[in-house]
Design a protein around this nucleic acid. Structure first.
Lengths: 200, 200
DNA sequence: GGACATGGTTAACGCTCATTAACAAAGCGA
DNA sequence: TCGCTTTGTTAATGAGCGTTAACCATGTCC
């Protein structure tokens, strides 16, 4: 079925480049000819591998959401019974993703509305499950945190972790390991502060 | 010059609606006819007020960046000499903006690359100044934080504060005041944690 | 009361761009 | 060697959309 002669199949090449281009210039900002050129074929040749441009975006977004959820569930299972450890593991996993797949993270919350209804619903459902996974764990670690506040806090921490694409490319950063550690500390600090109920 | 019969001039109406639509469906995702319809005129009538669709986006983005920077500078001046107070004021100001002008916040980091070179440079310069303003204050409050880490932390906190558009519309939130307080606590907690250097 | 600026209108133009048609070159099993 | 699948190619199609043209109503100033 797939002639995986090299490390990446054609489909995978295309998806990777499409993700990069979509993240850089937006879904509507990039044409099929550019995507084709990025993998060495030209324009309509892409239609041998995908039903259309929309299909590429859909596969990317569903893939991201699915990966995040699956990974999160796996981590939750591994460290089950130790909420602190689960939360740390979730944070770590999300940071790895944000640092290693910046284009996908960017797409994830930028181009969702360009999908067909059915795909968008699917992606949103996966996202919702992922959020709920976090909310449950957060409330185990910080039982005083009400559910609406916990949910808002989770979204806020996602925003914090997903900020990596906005950080300047070059050496103005603490380096991958340092950045990861910094983000991890900040995420935990943010949750901690969220749970510290207003005095009174 | 402007017949400000109502509270909003035509230009302002258009900008407001354009911001909302751009945020909802992306710059390329919305047509001039839709923008026109949103203010009761149709299509090309917009060209009596703006040179083109690009000009609307440009004015919006430059306006946002300028407002943020101006507001930030003002707050820094007001509480000068008390870094803690300045930081709290900056956080508060940014939260007000994020909560009151969600569409603009969304545009702010989503559609920057659709601008002409000159406009994009201007916006980026304003953004950079705004970041540097924060970085300075943060380093006064947390002198142990190295500059690259401080800059990364500021970007991360922006991500945290700008997450408001991702939070579900309805009553699943703690309400405006509660959300503002929560975000404020989280932002400060995140900075605090960023400054807590890894135990050596 | 004519002239002109203002802020609209609808129709037409032209460009971009996703998609499809028609065709070709390998690779390969029988 | 024939024929089928796979994976390209270039040319054509057709829709969407920003922009411009041409025209019209309504004040307002002198």
């Amino acid at each position: 079925m797939a002639t995986r002669t090299e490390s990446l199949t054609r489909r995978e090449q295309i998806l990777k480049e499409a993700a990069r281009l979509f993240a850089e210039r937006g879904f509507h900002g990039v044409g099929v000819d550019e995507i084709g050129a990025a993998v060495g074929i030209s324009g309509p040749g892409l239609y041998r591998h995908f039903a259309g441009k929309d299909a590429m975006l859909a596969e990317l977004l569903v893939g991201i959401s699915g990966q995040l959820l699956t990974g999160g569930k796996g981590r939750a299972a591994e460290a089950a019974g130790n909420p602190e450890a689960v939360l740390d593991s979730l944070v770590e996993g999300h940071i790895d993703f944000a640092l290693d797949d910046r284009p996908l993270i960017t797409l994830h919350d930028r181009e969702l509305d360009r999908l067909r209804d059915s795909d968008r619903k699917l992606v949103r459902q996966l996202q919702r499950q992922y959020v709920e996974l976090w909310v449950e764990v957060v409330r185990e670690v910080y039982p005083d945190l009400a559910e609406p506040a916990a949910r808002a806090a989770v979204h806020a921490v996602f925003g914090l972790l997903n900020s990596t694409p906005h950080m300047g490319r070059p050496g103005s950063l603490p380096g991958r390991a340092g950045t990861a550690a910094l983000l991890h500390r900040m995420a935990r600090g943010a949750f901690e502060a969220a749970a510290a109920s207003t005095p009174g």
